[in-house]
Write a protein that binds this DNA or RNA. Structure first.
Lengths: 130, 130
DNA sequence: TTCTTATGAATGAAAG
DNA sequence: CTTTCATTCATAAGAA
């Protein structure tokens, strides 16, 4: 038996729910079933970056723009962004209160591309976006 | 190991295992790996007994107490207790749904009665019961 | 070993 | 915002 690692995320290949808008270097967020949103690693990375930069409760306008931009990496809707921030904030707080839930994950993910960095920068600091 | 089902990207998980907390006469979990919580028979027994007594969604405070008590038998964290009840409840419901349509099961004790609280409290601290 | 099952962990979605 | 529900992934344990 191989040693178990502590936690991981996975990226699935294939899967064909509906309109794939995968962009540069992004893998599909295909899921075996179309039930619920399955964020790509890139989407999670950007969302996490926004969160770490201080964004907690994006306005509906911000949500719209974020989800639109994230659609570059795969299928996504506004409500997904809304729920993501809501859940992430709640679970961060749970963890901090040492109630139950687990530790934060540190992504050793992809070669964070300049494109992505610039993208996050853009999201964060351009007034007309945020 | 066959692969190809999905490609995985590993994520840092904490800073290694938490220290062994086998308090008193508790036997170790037997595994020095830190993959995931491996409950001892005693821990499972207590949790099951609490569940059978009607406890479904313990409060944060209950979780703390339960996990502290169970740490006597081996390494355990609050989140393990939290997940245990979540999973146990969910899978009971899941099983029930697959077999026959939900005939709402009535538990002997209503969700937040003082009677239940007292029972749980005593169950937790009376050694010979466990 | 490989396959199957049981279950710990995680998280999207939603209810309260 | 907090808490709960549903579904899924991953893995440990047992069966074959």
């Amino acid at each position: 038996m191989e040693d178990g690692v502590c936690s991981r995320i996975y990226v699935k290949g294939g899967g064909g729910c509906s309109g794939e808008s995968g962009g540069g270097g992004g893998k599909g967020s295909g899921s075996s079933k179309c039930g619920r949103w399955n964020p790509t690693a890139e989407q999670v990375k950007v969302l996490t970056e926004l969160f770490r930069s201080g964004l907690r409760t994006p306005s509906s306008d911000q949500i719209q723009k974020i989800s639109h931009h994230l659609s570059f990496y795969g299928k996504i809707e506004s409500k997904n962004v809304f729920y993501w921030f809501q859940n992430h904030k709640a679970r961060e707080r749970q963890k901090r209160r040492k109630l139950s839930l687990p530790q934060q994950q540190h992504f050793i993910l992809p070669p964070s591309s300049n494109l992505q960095r610039m993208f996050v920068f853009h999201l964060l600091f351009i007034p007309q976006f945020i």
